[in-house]
Structure formats: structure tokens, C-alpha cells
Design a protein around this nucleic acid. Sequence first.
DNA 1: ACCAGACACAACCAATAGTTGTGAAAGTAG
DNA 2: CTACTTTCACAACTATTGGTTGTGTCTGGT
Lengths: 309, 309
Amino acid sequence: MDAEVLRTFVTVAETGQFQAAADELGVSQQAVSKRIAALERHIEVTLLVRTSRGSRLNLDGQVFLPHAKKVLAAIEQAEQAVRPGSRPLRVDVLNRRIAPAQAVYRFYRSHPGTDLDAVTLSMENAAQAAQAVLEGTIDASFRALPADQVPAGISAERLLDAPLQLLVGPGHPLADAPWVSPANLAGHRIWIPGIKPGTEWAAFYQALSKTFGLSIDALGPNFGDEALMDALADSASLSTLVGSGDRYLWPQTHDLRRIPLHDPTPVYPHVLLFRSGDQHPMLTALRDHLRTVGPRTPHDVWAPDWVDH
Amino acid sequence: MDAEVLRTFVTVAETGQFQAAADELGVSQQAVSKRIAALERHIEVTLLVRTSRGSRLNLDGQVFLPHAKKVLAAIEQAEQAVRPGSRPLRVDVLNRRIAPAQAVYRFYRSHPGTDLDAVTLSMENAAQAAQAVLEGTIDASFRALPADQVPAGISAERLLDAPLQLLVGPGHPLADAPWVSPANLAGHRIWIPGIKPGTEWAAFYQALSKTFGLSIDALGPNFGDEALMDALADSASLSTLVGSGDRYLWPQTHDLRRIPLHDPTPVYPHVLLFRSGDQHPMLTALRDHLRTVGPRTPHDVWAPDWVDH
DNA sequence: ACCAGACACAACCAATAGTTGTGAAAGTAG
DNA sequence: CTACTTTCACAACTATTGGTTGTGTCTGGT
């Protein structure tokens, strides 16, 4: 039972002759004859009355015709359902609080009619996220995956740089500085709780530390934002690093200060991972959008050298 | 897009591995692999994630699976729809007033749950009815078709003999006879209006006339039963021939007499025409029924020699 | 490190579906 | 009534497809 055979039958039924159906389908009349014969042999019922001036449906043919059309419609629907763009693009935004989620949300707002799922995978590290993309669990993921770890079949495009800012309590020496260079953070205690070893976060902060000679304490479990903010507010020496994108997400209840970093500006580089050759129009639009909006700070930016080549 | 391919996909999706699906479908693992690959190539989307411990559906596969099942269900339905017996048997009973209609009705009553359409075709003659059967417009027809005119592909079985009776007015010489031999009708005026030339009726009455030396006036249009009954009631010499099966259908308003014919009993032989090899269970049941009920008068019966060999 | 399980690739073979050429049947025109 | 046209079917051939077996690669477990 082949779609082409059913299509042939429907065409013959509608045109009333084999030759016309053959022309319409772009095959020879004999091929149509064979297909119909095969169909009739398969269902063990003759469907058409052949005369010397065309063919008409008999009773069984009249019964079968709507069913054949229904099958064809179902096939059409099935093919449609998996056509690129007919289901929402599923993007892993890492964490709803930070830059990728905001970027995707802005994209969603600026593209009316888009259908898009922003999800947060509980993936340990970027490699696992890449695997999830490859396996089709999600369509794309914002991660900081080292270029040499991008698996075959996955494309990676650095599309979103999130500048880091220093977050300190009111008693911190840098509390009133307009900005600070990362090099000048050497010696300061920087606490970034909840970074798991082996993740791209760990690698990122390790690279940052090494480049600027910092001592970042990025171990231990995630104690929650409240605990961190409490600690910052109480301490005259403790600081942490946050993405500038999540500005409004940190409650102002603790009178914490955000100090921009410049000269250079360390950015957390978000690489969009997606299946190579994925034709989903929403994916193309998202990439175009991010490339156009240009969230990547153009000059005097630092990022780990293992991103992008 | 082939049913077998979709079935394979569904099986793989449900078993979780190619090998198990292959076993279930009775083909090799490689064949399953090829089929899935062909399907994915056709819809230009990968549906399954292959791992070393089986295969799982990806997002597109999950979307596609119910559609594939729906297509298979539609195919199943389509095949079911034309399976012998899934639609009512369509029998041409020639004329609702006479023997075939009654026989079919009795069959219908004695077979609960049967689904059957008794129709009256406006066919000029038996050959056309046979053609209609052949073309599948109807499934069977009760006719008196000469055996040598049965077209290829049609089977004919004489299943119903309708004995003729003489219908006369009260003033007719035979009005009070308990029965009469057809040979004794020679010389009597017999009027059977509405017989068209070239039909099996005309041939039947012609054969009857010739055999018993009768003079049957079977020409002219059908004036309607009322006109015929009026004429019979008024005349002391006019008679007509009717089937015994339609006994109760002739109103008794005219005080007409029915005289049975015997020695021999002329019967109108109904041959059931149907497509050779038709598997419709209702058709088989109808034939069995008629053969068992045995409407064919067993002895001393006359019928034209061109029926049944 | 090795083995077992799972899927893909390659080579080969049989069956299928297409092609062209031709024929029979039946309606149509001269 | 014959010749022509149209329609579908059949036959022979070919190309493609879909199946098989044999083998390879990858991965997870022992």
C-alpha cells in the first residue's frame, strides 16, 4: 500500500481515464495500469470498470475512493507535522535569569507570530547540552562550549556576550568606583557559589582567574541568592561576579553595588549550539536577529581563548 | 511513503531497538535500518536517536509517531471498507411486486443482521443487467438470461422459478376451473401489456406461445394494472398470465379468478446473475438460502430451453 | 582491556516498477 | 461496412529498489 499508488487511483477516479491520469502524474499509461492492477490485487477487489472510452468506479471503487483520499490526507498531515517550522523551536536558555533568556525573549517580542519554547535543561555541562541538541531533545542551546569539543553534526555560533560586573556590599573598597579593570581585582576575594567542576562555568572562571591573576572561590554548592547577598552586604571584602544582563533580577534589598568591568571587559561568551543543517526557520531568524542586534560587545572584550576556534 | 515503512517506524519506536523491530516484522536488522533511513531521507528529518543501547525518538520522531499511526489506521480502514461483506449486497429484484423481491425479503427476514439493498434497475433487458453486474453497479440480478448470452466474468444460477397462473374475469369460461393445462389455453385471448421487444420477457412469452401454440398479445405500452383488471373484469374471453408469487398484490376489487396452470406448470425461471468469484458472504448466503428453500418446483415444470444450458 | 550489543555500510541478488512496443475491444467517422 | 481513433492490457526488457549476508564502528558493561 503505497502513497503513489493511492494517488494514482484517485487521479484515475477523478480524470476517468488512465491516460489522463498518467499525463497528470508524469508516467506512462502502462505504469498507471500496472499500479491500479497491483492495488486491486492487493485489496483483492476490483475498483474500476474499464471500457473502451475510459474507466469508471464501480461500487467498491466508490467506497474506496474517500478512504484513499483520507489516507493521502493523513500522509500529507504527517509530512507537514515534521516540516521545519511546524513545531515550536525548543531553545535551552541555560537559566531563565540571565542573558540568553532575555535575548530569546526580546527576539520573541520582536517577531510576532513566532512559536518558541524557552526551556532550562538540567544539563551538567555544555557537552551534554550539545548531545541533547544532537539527539533532538532540544533544537538549540546557549552554552560556552570549547570549539574543539563541538561534536560532529553540531554547529556552534558565538552570538551573545554577557559582560560581567562586580557585585559588592556598601562597605567594600570598590563600592563607589565608577568601573574597575579585571586586573585590579587581584587580591580581592571573589565568591561564586554553586559552580560545579567540569562545567563550562568552572572552565570560564578558571580561565578568567588565570588571565588576570584572580583568586576566585567557585567551589561548593549553590547556597541560593539570598545567602550570597547577605554575605556580600555584611562583608567589606567579599565580592562576586554577575552578568550585566540580569541587572534587574538582583533585588535591591541589600544595598549592593554593581561595578562595571572595563579595560578589558570580561564577557561570558554564549555560543549557540544547533544541529548542522537544521532548516527550522525560527532558528535562522533567531541567529539573524542576534547577529543583527549585535549583543557582542565590539571592542576591548575578554573571553576565554577556547571559544570560537 | 509506504505502509510497510511506517509500520516499521512505529515498531521501532515501540520496541526501542531496530533488532527487536526486525524480529517482530520478520526481516533483518539491516532492512529495518534501511527503511528508517529511507523514511528519514524522504521527509528530510531524522526521527530517531541511535545509541549503542537502542534507539529513541527525538522531538520530530515524537511528533511524527502519532501521525504515522493515524496513516496506518486510515489504511487499515480503507482496506476494511472494501473487504467482502463490509457493504450491503446490492441485488436487483427486477420489480418489487414479484417473486425475486419476495424471495429476497424472506431471505432478509430469516437472516438477522443482514445488510442488503434490494433495488430495481431501469434496465431494458437482462443483458444490460448482466453488464451492470459486471461493472459493479449492482452485485446480483434476478433475470431470465439465455445461457449463451451470459458474458464472461458473470456466473448464472437458476434459483427461483415463479409458476404462472391465469388471471380471468368472473365471466370467463375457465373462471371456475380448479386448474388448466397450458395446452388448453390455445385459442384463448391472453393479453400481457407492457412487454418490450428484445427483453427476456418477450422471449419468454414467445417461447411459451410457440411451445403450447398460444396467441399471446404482449405488445404495446404498459397501461397500468387498473386498466388491465378493468378489461379482464369486463370481458368473458380475455385473460392474462401472472406470477403466483404476487398473489396478494393483485387487489380483489374486481372479483378476478386465479387459475393455476399444471401439466406442465409454466414457470418464469429467474437466474441469479453475479460476478464470478464474488466473495461477498451475503451473496453466498442468499444463494445457499434459495437453493435450500428450493423455490424451484421439482417436477412437471416448463421453462424456455434457453435457460440453464 | 575486552566483550557484547546495537546500528550502519558494502556487496550482492531477487523482486519490483518503470519503460517501449504491440494487441484487442469498442466507439466513431467516412 | 470499413477504417480510424481511443482505451486499456499484455509482453519483453531494463533500471531501480528492497532485501539478504557479511563486516565495521561505536559504546557501555564486565
